[in-house]
C-alpha cells in the first residue's frame, strides 16, 4: 500500500503540471489543444539531450519546458495568424514534433540512469540522499510554486483577459483586447507546463522516449475532471488546487489497479471509457430522464454544446 501512495504522489505531482496546462487551454480558454501529445515527450527529449551534453539538470529541465512553450507558440501562430483550425493546428505541431524529437535525440530513446538528475541535484543542496521521499518533497515544492504563480497570473488584468477570451471572446474583443494574442499567450504557458511535466517525468524515469506521449492527453483530461468533480468549487484557486489533487488521485487509481493485478495494457482503454462516461453524463441524463436542466458548464470539456447562458435567476 505504501508503494501505491508513493507512486500516486510522485507520478501525480509530475503529471499535475500537464493537467494544469490542459486545464488552462481546454477549460479556461476553450481551446482543445492537441499539441500536448507531442509537447510532453518533446520536453523529455530536449531535457535528455541537454543532460547527455553535460548541462546542469536544472537548466536541462528548464530547456525542456521552454521547448514546450515554443511548440505552443507554433500552434498558436498557426491558428491565430494563419487561421488554421485549432484542432488541426495542434495535430500539425504534434506531428512535426516527432521529427524534432528524433533529430534532437539522434535516436528513439535516451537512457539517463547513469547521469545525475534534477532530484539528486536538489537533494544534494540540502545534504539529503535522493530517495522517493525527497523526490516527493521537491516535486511538491515546485508544484506549490507553479500553483501559486498560476493563481496569481490568472487574476491579473492579462490573466483575466485570457479567461475572458474563453468565456466570451466577442465581448472581450469589444473591450479592446486582441484575442489572437491572448490565445497565443495561453498556448505558450500551457505547453510550457506540459513540457515541464515531460522534463520532470524523464528525469524521474531515467530515460526519454519518443513514444512516451501516447495517451497522456486523455490521462490529463481524466485528472482535470477528477479534480473538478471531487475537489472543485466555483473559485479559480480551488479549481487549480483540485486539478493537482485530481492528478494525484488519478495516478493513485492507476497504481492501485496495477497493485491489484489489472493488466497495464488495458489502462488506456479504461481511462478513455471513463472519461467518455463522465463527459457524457450530463447529456445522458437529459436523454434518459428528460431533464431539461442539465449542468451548464464552462467552455471546454463538457459534451454538451456549452451554452453561455448559465442559470437564469429572477430580475
Amino acid at each position: 500500500m505504501e508503494s501505491v501512495v508513493t507512486s500516486a504522489l510522485q507520478q501525480g505531482l509530475i503529471f499535475a503540471f500537464m493537467a494544469l496546462g490542459v486545464f488552462l487551454t481546454f477549460e479556461l480558454l476553450g481551446f482543445p489543444d492537441l499539441t500536448v501529445e507531442g509537447t510532453f515527450p518533446l520536453g523529455a527529449a530536449v531535457t535528455a539531450r541537454a543532460i547527455i551534453d553535460g548541462a546542469n539538470p536544472l537548466l536541462a529541465v528548464l530547456m525542456g519546458a521552454l521547448a514546450g512553450g515554443l511548440a505552443g507558440a507554433a500552434t498558436g501562430l498557426m491558428h491565430t495568424r494563419l487561421k488554421v483550425n485549432n484542432i488541426l493546428a495542434g495535430i500539425l505541431t504534434a506531428s512535426a514534433i516527432y521529427t524534432v524529437m528524433l533529430r534532437t535525440m539522434g535516436r528513439p530513446n535516451i537512457p539517463l540512469l547513469a547521469n545525475e538528475n534534477i532530484y539528486g541535484r536538489i537533494s544534494g543542496w540540502f545534504n539529503l540522499t535522493e530517495n522517493s521521499f525527497s523526490i516527493i518533497i521537491i516535486l511538491a515544492l515546485i508544484t506549490l510554486l507553479v500553483r501559486f504563480l498560476l493563481g496569481w497570473f490568472l487574476n491579473t488584468d492579462l490573466g483575466l483577459a485570457i479567461r475572458a477570451t474563453g468565456s466570451n471572446e466577442r465581448m472581450i474583443r469589444s473591450l479592446g483586447v486582441n484575442t489572437d494574442n491572448t490565445k497565443l499567450l495561453a498556448l505558450i504557458i500551457s505547453n510550457f507546463l506540459v513540457g515541464l511535466s515531460g522534463a520532470l517525468a524523464c528525469q524521474f524515469q531515467g530515460f526519454a522516449d519518443v513514444g512516451m506521449g501516447i495517451g497522456v492527453l486523455v490521462a490529463a483530461i481524466a485528472s482535470v475532471i477528477a479534480g473538478e468533480t471531487i475537489f472543485g468549487g466555483n473559485s479559480l484557486g480551488r479549481l487549480l488546487t483540485g486539478v493537482i489533487l485530481g492528478s494525484i488521485v488519478y495516478r493513485g487509481l492507476l497504481a492501485l489497479g496495477l497493485r491489484l493485478g489489472l493488466p497495464a495494457e488495458d489502462f488506456k482503454l479504461i481511462t478513455a471509457v471513463l472519461v467518455l462516461l463522465v463527459l457524457c453524463l450530463p447529456s445522458l441524463k437529459t436523454t434518459i430522464f428528460w431533464q431539461k436542466d442539465s449542468i451548464a458548464k464552462q467552455p471546454g470539456l463538457s459534451a454538451q454544446p456549452s451554452d453561455k447562458t448559465g442559470r437564469e435567476g429572477d430580475a
Binding site: A164, M171, P299
Partner: peptide, 23 residues
C-alpha cells in the same frame, strides 16, 4: 458579459477598455 466570470471581474475588464493589460 462573460457568464463564468464574476461581476467584479467583468467590470475589471471593462474598466481597462482599450488600455494595455499587464500584471
Amino acid at each position: 458579459t462573460a457568464a463564468e466570470l464574476s461581476i467584479e471581474e467583468n467590470l475589471a475588464m471593462a474598466y481597462l477598455r482599450g488600455q494595455r493589460r499587464g500584471l
